[in-house]
Design a protein around this nucleic acid. Structure first.
Lengths: 342, 342
DNA sequence: ACCAAGATTGCATACGTATGAAAGGTACGA
DNA sequence: TCGTACCTTTCATACGTATGCAATCTTGGT
């Protein structure tokens, strides 16, 4: 419990220079002579001094903290995001402060959390799988704190957002299933309020419509494993079942596949083709081997950070909406060719 | 970009009181009269004032930030930890600053990261799946920053640690497999430097030894999916293969099961029983249905926080080592009864 | 040797808050 | 009425750093 707080003053005293010199030594781009640099380096080393980021940020107005709001890490898309985002920010001298928003009380909860985030004087906010009231968005804006919606967009045009092209992804999946000769299409939806849900479904329907087809069955899984199981039971419990199903994300697709195989005794893809969205790691595990749309997490993270930094460094005020391509990854959960159908 | 910074001074001016009064209003347990309280409440509300945590922590020495070092979120045990830990800390007014340590350069990396953590004046550090040099541990100690090792222990007795009883868990698994009549035991190890790896293996061997048995095959998977696949190929590639295998954690067990089933055409549990450790969510998904030891994340998180808070609030200096029971969860990856064996 | 321009340094102050000490206010009993 | 004790409030200062400004030192050209 020895309170061995070392300040720039201690270093200055030991090195025989002023406190400002020490401060300058630790501020890249400041002018310090070789000689004093060396004295300070030695003294700082000896005392084990490191600048206090909090004190620094009090005066610079920059905390080098990015607030990340995330709702549920059960969907293994998000752990990847947290890891990549933290890692890349870390390399740039920033760090991530995590806020978990119970998906329960949706946006009200996010608003409260965002208040807490602002208390930490963060330099930016990343909202993953969570939306926020536009009133609060305005407030962040007023504080000069940039916000980036990650894997989510919102009507408010003043908010930056980085997403995959969910609509195009849905369309690609429809086209794939059509090309394989499927006829009866099921869709298992995520949480209805989510833009990913809306866009993926819209794209899928669009793709079907282009071939004169439409949805045969629809059910809601709310992005949750258990609810997706229940949805699958409803959709496939009777005999007039779809012969192909698009599940709004991989996480739910696993639940659907498990029900089809282990409860209903159906074969994938012989009896039903299943496609998902995200390409989380288990999708390529042989147990699932799921055909899906890959969201390029690295690219999404890179764009997110680019957006943040542009706002932080250049005070770039205007919203930036980036939509990245998702690539279709065909695996074993869809049948091989149209010939063997029905 | 309007820089609408509202300070306690602004509130004070509007409310017609002193800045200290405002500060006291926002400090629980301070004495403020009903009348001024009300004036401040109104003024603060009107201006949208919230105390600046960073400025506050500069003077109180408490940042209400907990640093979390985590190596890899691919193992789905850790996302659960991050989520629970953040959530519970959040309820107590603390927040989690995330640091990802590349598992690559192990402890050297952690040391550097810990330096960065200290720069943020965190109130405590949780080290999950990462070890740290005792030199640096001493330094944190000197700074009065408590450290808790999560799911990891270390020889240094001055470090607090929260773990499951990995040894007992390993033993339970050995006893289960023995009771099912297995004879040839395989073990797929995690990263050799990890205490969980050592303890789980030790317990397993201990359990086997108690029945006069020993290991038939051993291979290393380093806690990684791909390496575990390779290990499984080596171990089960030839005909004289084990009839049961303990994989050091669930994450690797999935890889092993996938190889056994989809590359080698073996049936689980008819040909081989597989057991893991952790009970991450996919373990109970029907595709794996894995027999494993459940680590009680909630309890571990609760103990971690208790340990931290004891140190932070009471300045409790001494290390606290908590070991929690893990419960055996028998599922379908192990054969049902000894009768049908061999 | 001298001067100007540039580089380096120190001084003083500011960032937004908490808090000990002192001053002011209130209530109550004698 | 006065004095005491207690509750509120304000004043002043401190936390650890960054930075404008003025002062000082270097450097190089003449």
């Amino acid at each position: 419990m020895a309170n061995e707080k070392v300040t720039s003053n201690d270093v200055a005293r030991l090195a025989g220079v002023s406190q400002s010199a020490v401060s300058r030594y630790f501020t890249p781009g400041s002018s310090v002579s070789k000689k004093t640099s060396e004295k300070i380096r030695v003294a700082a080393e000896q005392l084990g001094y490191r600048p206090n980021i909090l004190a620094r940020s009090l005066i610079t107005g920059r905390s080098r903290i990015i607030g990340l709001v995330v709702a549920y890490l059960e969907n293994y898309f998000y752990p990847e995001v947290v890891e990549r985002l933290s890692k890349v920010l870390q390399e740039q001298g920033y760090h991530v402060l995590v806020f978990i928003s119970s998906p329960a009380s949706a946006s009200e909860n996010v608003d409260q959390i965002t208040q807490e985030i602002l208390d930490y004087q963060v330099d930016g906010i990343v909202l993953a799988s969570a939306s926020m009231s536009s009133e609060l968005a305005a407030r962040c804006h007023a504080h000069g704190v940039p916000i980036v919606l990650f894997n989510r967009s919102q009507d408010d045009e003043r908010l930056s957002a980085v997403t995959s092209d969910n609509r195009a992804g849905g369309r690609k999946l429809a086209e794939l299933l059509l090309s394989l000769g499927h006829e009866k299409f099921g869709y298992i939806a995520g949480f209805e309020g989510a833009s990913t849900q809306r866009d993926r479904e819209a794209g899928f329907l669009e793709g079907l419509a282009a071939a004169g087809k439409s949805l045969y069955r629809r059910s809601v899984g709310n992005f949750r494993y258990e609810e997706a199981q229940a949805a699958a039971r409803r959709m496939f419990g009777s005999d007039d079942r779809p012969d192909a199903v698009f599940v709004c994300n991989d996480h739910m697709a696993f639940a659907v596949m498990d029900v089809l195989r282990f409860e209903l005794g159906l074969e994938i893809p012989q009896d039903v083709s299943v496609v998902g969205f995200d390409d989380v790691p288990p999708a390529r595990w042989p147990a699932y081997n799921l055909t899906t749309i890959r969201q390029d997490v690295d690219a999404m993270v890179a764009e997110t950070i680019r957006t943040l930094m542009r706002a932080i460094d250049n005070g770039d005020d205007q919203a930036r909406r980036v939509t990245l391509d998702g690539t279709l990854v065909v695996r074993g959960s869809t049948r091989k060719c149209p010939a063997t159908s029905n």
